[in-house]
Every structure is written in structure tokens, then in C-alpha cells.
Amino acid sequence: MITLHHPFTETAVRALCAGEAVRVSGRVCTGRDRLHKHLAEGGACPADLRDGALFHCGPVVVPLSPDPAQPSDGRGGWRVVAAGPTTSIREEPYMARVIERFGVRVVIGKGGMGEATRAACARFGCVYLQAVGGAAALIAQRIKRVAQVHFLEEFGATEALWELDIEGLEAVVGIDASGRSLYDEVRDASAMRLRRLLG
């Protein structure tokens, strides 16, 4: 199995082909609807996304200490008990812009993305990885540490930007940097079969 480690180089990313299984390690940042809208509309990103990975994920987190005085936007202090990909297509209106603005190399999510993201992957050297949807206990096990959290107050825990240190997260290349999308292929082939079934 191919292994990818942060920081992700353009060469490593461009070498990947749709359908290949990979394991991802190192720093990964989570982001969902609120963050993508913020970033695409010109907002600043407190985490460094250049040559980084953006994971479409809202984790289940619990504070390590029950102390309510613990700084809410600081380093550590949290444990991820469940984490997995959310449906990526919701970020389609923003994704291409975010890849371009911040130099994101790896997007991790589920279900694939649209034409604009596919084109941005090819143009800027980015890859879209399919994580296993709903496998939250397994994926949480790959998360070794919460390094930092941003936008906790503003966006809430689920939509916040969590900087996670991960080890060996399993994924499959869904859209590669040559612009090939496995989802488009499955969609086209299944559309043909559906037409045959419905006569």
C-alpha cells in the first residue's frame, strides 16, 4: 500500500492514480461547511494548509479534563472518540477556490466531488481521497493527538478546524491529479445499467 506523509509534495500527489489504496500520516486539518465558506470568501486560515490535507470531518471530541476554565481555543486538551468523513459535495462551491488560495494538496472526504474540484486537482496538483464513510471508531484510532483547535467558539465543536496528528489513515484515491474521477466512471456506468433496467 502507498504511504503519504505530511507535508505532501506535488510529486507524491501527482504520482497517485484513481483507485489506489493509500495510508496517510502526519498533520491533517478538519473542515466542514462553515470553514470552507469562510476560506473561499477571503477569510484567513489560522492553520497552515500549504502542502497540507483538509479532511471533511466533524469529529466527536471530549475534553481530557473536566475543568471548564480550560482555554477553549488552545493547544491540546481534547480527545477524539469518533471521526469520519462527511459528504464532500457540499463543499463543491468552495473547494476549488480553497485549493488554489491555500495550496491544499490532499482533500479527504467521502462520495467524491464535482467538475470544479476535479479541474482544480489537475491544475494545482491536488488529490481527493475517499475515507471509509461511517468507520468512525476505526478512524479515531488512527488519530494520535489533537494538536490544536481553531474557531471552536465561532463554529462549534463539530464545524471547528481541528489540527490532528494521524497515523496510517486508510483511504482510496477517488480523484487523481490527472483529472480522473472514479465517481464519474461509476456514475456513468451505473446510469447505463439503470437505463437498461428501466427499458
Binding site: 461511517g134 471508531a137 479515531a140
Partner: peptide
């Protein structure tokens, strides 16, 4: 992975999917 995840969540009493 789904089968492995199912066993792990049960054993740990943690959510089997993060979207509860």
C-alpha cells in the same frame, strides 16, 4: 473496514459513526 469498525465501536462503547 466497516466490519472491523463495528467490532471496535462495540468493544470501546464509542460511536460507530461520528454523525450520531
Amino acid at each position: 473496514a466497516l466490519v472491523e469498525n463495528t467490532a471496535l465501536a462495540r468493544q470501546q462503547s464509542t460511536p460507530l459513526c461520528q454523525d450520531t
